[in-house]
Design a protein around this nucleic acid. Sequence first.
DNA 1: AGATTAAACGGAGGCGCCTCCGTTTATTAT
DNA 2: ATAATAAACGGAGGCGCCTCCGTTTAATCT
Lengths: 204, 204
Amino acid sequence: MASKPSTEPKDQIPPAGKSLRADARRNRDKLIETAAQAFADHGTAASLEDIARRASVGVGTLYRHFPTREHLVEAVYRHEVEALCDAAEELARELTSDRTLEEWMHRFVGYIATKRGMGDSLRILLNSNSELFADSYGKVPIVLAGLIARAVADGSIRADVDSTDVLHALSGTYSMPNSPEWHDRSRRLVGLLMDGLRWGAPKA
Amino acid sequence: MASKPSTEPKDQIPPAGKSLRADARRNRDKLIETAAQAFADHGTAASLEDIARRASVGVGTLYRHFPTREHLVEAVYRHEVEALCDAAEELARELTSDRTLEEWMHRFVGYIATKRGMGDSLRILLNSNSELFADSYGKVPIVLAGLIARAVADGSIRADVDSTDVLHALSGTYSMPNSPEWHDRSRRLVGLLMDGLRWGAPKA
DNA sequence: AGATTAAACGGAGGCGCCTCCGTTTATTAT
DNA sequence: ATAATAAACGGAGGCGCCTCCGTTTAATCT
């Protein structure tokens, strides 16, 4: 069932768009998910063969989808920022506006933790590919601003809040040393911020 | 004849100083020589195993002397600048002062050609390790100035020459495209410079 | 001239990278 | 349903990296 003189080998081009064959999309998604875990655990230098293995996929498949390590890193990065942004809507459907904000900030901080492990390659990527930065990271401040505006609107937090200030405060966790207490520290930071935001809110 | 409980494994430290065992120094020199060739031919990404092979040495030996690729690159770089500088004295012993200058400039240009192939790693190295830059490259302008001063003194070139200008002119070859004519171009450049320098010299 | 010893050697072995191409499979046409 | 076809798969294979450690050898001591 093979080696017939076909017209042209259309292989070797990474589409990534929408029109992928069902199995292709499945593998692609699994790879991104697995890679995200691996990068978080061992940094961006994690073995690509190992990632393929864990995703139950041949290395060939990995390389067809992501010709270089950087392609994979970028895909993971994009995926995670998107997930983070999408989570906002989802949370809003189940929680009060202030609890939504709080939970989302927790996730944002957790997300930053992941990026610390990837710092190496990621910095290079963001420097050389500013489109990527604008595309995905650009949405974060907007989402945060939206959540804050909502909570302000229904009176669960005070109105004199600059969302940029909050973002900066959260970003501070990026430079924390990653000791075992890191998780607790960042939790407290978010809690502290929320207390400050609720203080003197109309609804309180 | 081995595995006796010796006092301490003194292995794994790259000395590079003077007090090497005879065989160690021999291998080290051979490695640098071979690596210089390999880097010139294939860039700094050349296979280290191949370099070891060509030098008739085990990879272990290569890695003992040069723990990382960068260590080897640096050693090659240092070695070549030194050779270039030393060549000045040697040439001066056999040639007239203006011919010495001319020949040395030819070598300098040839040396630059080599560095073009190494550009990748070398730039990083020179940026991060400014001591290296000062140490070795710093001597080049001094040597050139010396050769010019000598030729001026015996009247074979004109006296109103700034050696820095000459250096800049030669450095221009660094940005030449490396076409097949590169060699001829740079030869002509040096010839042109010498003509300019000889013009109106007392001895002419 | 041995004998001793620590420096130096060298290459096998384990792992990762990446490509190539024979085989499988989703999709399309009949 | 069945056949045809191009997309996608996957893993063997070739190469490079680097470490570890048993063996060789230059230098030193007697």
